[in-house]
């Protein structure tokens, strides 16, 4: 009924050519389509769809020089069943396991989850604590640049990408140290197929009963996903006594800025983010 124009390039080069040929530049980058199809009724009828999921350069996982490179069009299930990721970035696996369903994960891509730029995107918080960066390809300049992932987000579901720019790779630095604690937990409305009300990703180094360092990124509780630097600083070097845990809960409660929407209330999101931190810290203690 609705006629839409659609292209399916197989290489970045083809992508560039197609893009150059579209005068109005009213394109819509389509990867797995699992976010886009949900909102299909609201899509502009004039947009020209470019399905990038067939671009070979954008697929697969590679390990090079203590870094993992993930092609943006790699599906969530490809990541879930990738041994490299399983062993090297367990926190990402924990997150992906909580996402959607088997069928959706077969289509949904990591680049789409990031490109959608939702503060509830479940791969984003683990990648932020891992201090991942992303490669961005611009069809206008035909160049690739690398930026920290956190710099991509400009607001809820808004990114700094422009003029046909696409994410090509996600780059994750690996730790030399294998004894790193990692935590991911998501709270939704039910056990599966659920959008995050609040979540927490954390990685930490714990030794001599103290937190050497900790990196924290909660999901769905601020306009964009970001690190909790005040809470991290407070916890650094501390023994996890009940008093410290309580104080850290108060700090993170103030550091986030959740809203009330159809999925939950502001007050509840503050409460469960505090609980998630307590849960994370008690897991950290129990591990050691």
């Amino acid at each position: 009924m609705n006629s839409m124009q659609c292209y399916s390039p197989n290489t970045l080069d083809e992508y560039q050519k197609i893009y150059s040929g579209i005068a109005e530049k009213n394109i819509l980058v389509f990867s797995g389509g699992t976010d886009l199809m949900i909102g299909r009724h609201e899509l502009s009828q004039d947009a020209i769809i470019i399905d990038i999921s067939g671009i070979a350069e954008l697929k697969g996982v590679e390990k090079k020089e203590n870094k993992i490179f993930i092609g943006s069009c790699t599906t969530l299930n490809e990541l879930l069943y990738s041994h490299k990721i399983q062993n090297d970035i367990p926190i990402l696996i924990k997150a992906i396991k909580t996402m959607a369903s088997e069928q959706i994960r077969n289509r949904a891509t990591i680049g789409g989850n990031i490109g959608n730029a939702s503060p509830a995107g479940d791969t984003i918080t683990p990648l932020v604590v891992l201090e991942a960066s992303i490669q961005i390809y611009s069809p206008e300049s035909n160049e690739v640049k690398t930026i920290p992932l956190e710099a991509l987000f400009s607001g809820p579901c808004a990114s700094t990408l422009q003029n046909g720019e696409i994410i090509t790779k996600i780059i994750i630095p690996l730790f030399e140290d294998k004894d790193i604690f990692c935590y991911f937990r998501k709270i939704g409305q039910r056990n599966a197929m659920t959008i995050t009300k609040a979540s927490l990703s954390a990685i930490a180094k714990y030794s001599d009963s103290k937190i050497e360092w900790i990196k924290l990124a909660p999901g769905s509780v601020s306009p964009v996903v970001k690190r909790m630097s005040k809470t991290e600083e407070f916890l650094q070097g501390k023994k996890l006594t009940p008093a410290v845990i309580n104080e850290s809960k108060e700090i993170i409660g103030k550091e986030i800025s959740p809203i009330t929407d159809i999925r939950s209330t502001k007050a509840f999101r503050v409460l469960i983010t505090k609980n998630l931190l307590a849960d994370c810290l008690s897991e950290l203690i129990n591990r050691h």
Partner: peptide
């Protein structure tokens, strides 16, 4: 436990299965 219809000033806010939560097989 799950099903909450959200009405604001008389207008139903729920739009579909993503925000009207029913139990799935996992629940």
């Amino acid at each position: 436990v799950y099903e909450a219809l959200c009405i604001k000033d008389g207008e139903v806010q729920n739009r579909g299965f993503r925000d009207y939560i029913i139990p799935t097989i996992q629940d």
